[in-house]
């Protein structure tokens, strides 16, 4: 008989709200980290919308999960070790979902919402997608049902995974003890993930266990010399949550209408974000390569997003408001 499992996320909501308020107080008191009421409002509104979108599609996702589970390979009972194993394997599935969500534009169109804030605080954690079902994100969990983990168990551990990821969206925690940083995803690791600095782009996809990034070659530690710049490569020009939720889908639609070949259309959907049919585009690889070349040319130059250039000097050009960088 399956146990009646609660929804961990629903239970955690009051704690989320209390911790956001506490973090605001800490930011004010310590002067570390940042908040903006408009950005926080957009993030929280997106979180609320995500809850509604999730509730509307939950039944369908559960039905698909049950269908796959009926064709399972093993009968896995409701034992404690099954919960532990499900938690670990669900986190592995999350890693691959998350990596794909950054490397395939179709999935990125849904996930970009979470990265579209230029702030990094606990409200950013709640800035979640409205179009997860439409993007077919649930496909990544289907292998767990096929193996034989009961859907209710998988959704329960997935909820725990989401709750864990809340607290790592903060600048209030610098580093955790060494053993913890080695195994678990932490605020430091996840700050790297949310940064747009070339060295940090598309790194640290882990949900709970950072070991997946270490195993699959996507780990990047946070460096004291490069302060993270948060957001996306092309930050949104508006704080409107509706636009944040749909802008990349609109971009895909626009690019498909302009596509001149089937190859281009496929690349616009399945290629990495920033892909262009006739050049390197603005993919993370292209940006990182440009940055590396720039660093090689001028080793002493300030690193992108990490340093402050020298003061602007009054230029010789005859116009007020004009600053010119010294040679």
């Amino acid at each position: 008989m399956p146990p009646d499992l609660p929804d961990p996320v629903k239970l955690a909501v009051p704690a989320f709200a209390a911790l956001v308020a506490l973090e605001m107080w800490l930011v004010k008191r310590r002067g570390r980290g940042a908040y903006d009421w408009r950005d926080a409002g957009a993030s929280l509104t997106l979180g609320l919308g995500s809850t509604v979108a999730g509730a509307l599609t939950a039944g369908l996702v559960f039905a698909i999960a049950m269908f796959v589970w009926q064709h399972r390979l093993f009968d896995i009972g409701w034992t404690w070790w099954a919960f532990v194993l499900a938690f670990v394997l669900d986190d592995l599935a999350y890693y691959w979902f998350h990596r794909t969500a950054h490397r395939v534009r179709w999935f990125w169109a849904s996930h970009v919402i979470h990265h579209s804030s230029q702030h990094y605080n606990l409200t950013t954690a709640l800035r979640q997608t409205w179009t997860g079902f439409f993007s077919l994100a649930f496909l990544f969990r289907l292998p767990l049902f096929l193996i034989g983990f009961p859907p209710a168990m998988v959704f329960f551990v997935a909820g725990l995974n989401l709750v864990y990821q809340f607290w790592i969206h903060t600048e209030q925690v610098d580093r955790m003890p060494g053993w913890f940083e080695a195994v678990m995803n932490t605020p430091s690791h996840h700050r790297v993930h949310h940064a747009t600095n070339p060295l940090y782009l598309d790194r640290n996809y882990a949900g709970v266990f950072i070991i997946w990034d270490r195993m699959f070659g996507t780990f990047q530690p946070e460096l004291a010399s490069i302060r993270p710049r948060y957001g996306i490569v092309k930050n949104l020009g508006t704080l409107n949550p509706l636009w944040a939720a749909v802008h990349e889908w609109a971009g895909i639609g626009r690019d498909l209408l302009r596509a001149r070949s089937l190859r281009e259309a496929a690349g616009r959907i399945a290629g990495p974000p920033g892909w262009q049919p006739d050049g390197p585009g603005e993919t993370s690889e292209a940006i990182r390569a440009r940055w590396a070349a720039q660093q090689a040319r001028a080793p002493g130059a300030p690193q992108a997003g990490g340093g402050v250039p020298g003061p602007a000097q009054g230029g010789s050009e005859p116009a007020a408001g004009v600053g010119v960088r010294g040679a």
Partner: peptide, 9 residues
């Protein structure tokens, strides 16, 4: 990256 900002209005 690589923009090489020189002057600002």
């Amino acid at each position: 990256v690589g923009f090489g900002a020189e002057a600002a209005l």
